[in-house]
Amino acid sequence: MDTHYTATAKLLHWLIALMIFGMLGFGFYMTGLDLSPTKLELYSWHKWAGVTVFVLVLVRLAWRIGHKPPALPAHMPAIERLAAHAGHHLLYVLMLAIPLSGWLMSSAKGFQTVWFGVLPLPDLLAKDKALGNLLETVHFVLNYTLIAVLLGHVGAALKHHFIDRDDVLIRMLPRRKG
């Protein structure tokens, strides 16, 4: 049995990882700016990129359902297996919930999301200031939760590589030639 993830799974993993790190920095940076045309432009780009992440995550989930990942190393105790599965599930939930909360927040605030200025996303919520502010908090809290889970995720990957010295990190990396 192949011990590596599929090339598609790897591509989606690293593409989404890169975009999410970018989005986190982008999000915190732009919200700190004073209102200006630049800020409005950055907000739009944040929304467009975030919707792109959402779509990529849907593709990734569809791929994941059809392609079982390689089994976890045999040396892992039950508690670590549980933590790994719970962590990965939580990551999927957050990767969907964060852009979704952003989209809903935008609708509730009365700022429709038009993907790259071309494709208008339906407003699933009517304009409602209080709800908009609540969803802003939800987006914010989910992002902090994501940061915490990501720290655990990266920490676990590094532990596997440097302490357990197993192939858990390697199998998500591009295959070495030869």
Binding site: L40, E41, S44, G110, F111, Q112, T113, V114, G117
Partner: peptide, 8 residues
């Protein structure tokens, strides 16, 4: 219109 999006 803001960033091409209709606003009220």
């Amino acid at each position: 219109q803001q960033m091409g999006v209709a606003m009220q």
